[in-house]
Write a protein that binds this DNA or RNA. Structure first.
Lengths: 139, 139
DNA sequence: TTAATTGCAAATCCTTTGCAGATTC
DNA sequence: GAATCTGCAAAGGATTTGCAATTAA
């Protein structure tokens, strides 16, 4: 069957490989952490690539829909993006001084997957935020 | 100087019990789920309480700083609030159709506390977001 | 009386959209 | 040549802030 365009349930736009599209992909590939659309736009600027901010937003959104990037809602109403399958870890932040501790959570990863499976969900991504008082600030 | 405010580390504003402050507290007390500042503002309107939107935002923010309410970043750039100590549970959301499954996670609660303790943190609150594809949408 | 609080409107910030021109297939 | 993309600027929606009037302590 060569029918690769059969109108059905969820057929997405073709996603043509343009210069700006590639630039954005590269920017994501080069960063380990989450970045906002504007961060990426700035990075492209500094790298000499001229890409409109609207294009960055549209592309990032398309990539998110296609499951190519993970999206995280940051406080302040910004959306942050990161390429999928990056080394996964979370942060424990002090609400008083902002000190941050990087934590790995193999147990949570496992818990996440089992919960997803139990409920028939797949391709589950998780966002975990731990905020508390660090030793110094609680004294 | 009748020093009654010895400047120290983190002294917060007194937080006076005004009519609108109480109205907001009541609105939060009456709801089990997270609500946006605007949701609360609307609710107060319908309840006959006239409170400015800015006041709702300011009060909610103050309560969040004081640790009286939990804040959640909803996609779309809105912040959602819920009174603390409510029956604690999290959600598993389908990124395609929005279907939501309520999940309880005693194991995560335990994991959270141990991670916090191991790092010398206390009074840790956690926010967990699980997003994936539900059974129907992945078909 | 003093300091905190409120309302309203203007100001910000992040993100989305409309549309004409450039680009890929 | 047709369907996608882009850029720019205008539009939108949520949240913040300035400031004078109001209210609690």
């Amino acid at each position: 069957m060569t029918d690769e365009g059969v109108p059905g349930a969820g057929q997405r736009a073709p996603l043509r490989p343009t210069r700006q599209r590639r630039a954005i992909t590269d920017a994501l590939a080069g960063a380990e952490e989450f970045q906002s659309a504007q961060d990426i736009h700035d990075a492209l600027r500094h790298a000499g690539e001229k890409v409109g901010l609207a294009t960055v937003y549209r592309t990032l959104q398309a990539m998110a829909d296609a499951g190519e990037v993970d999206v995280l809602q940051a406080p302040g109403g910004e959306a942050a993006y990161r390429r999928c399958s990056a080394s996964h870890h979370h942060h424990l932040v002090c609400r008083e001084c902002g000190r941050t501790v990087e934590i790995s959570g193999s147990s949570v990863e496992r818990w996440t997957e089992s919960v997803a499976r139990d409920n028939g969900f797949s391709e589950v991504s998780h966002t975990i935020e731990l905020v508390g008082l660090c030793a110094d600030c609680s004294r």
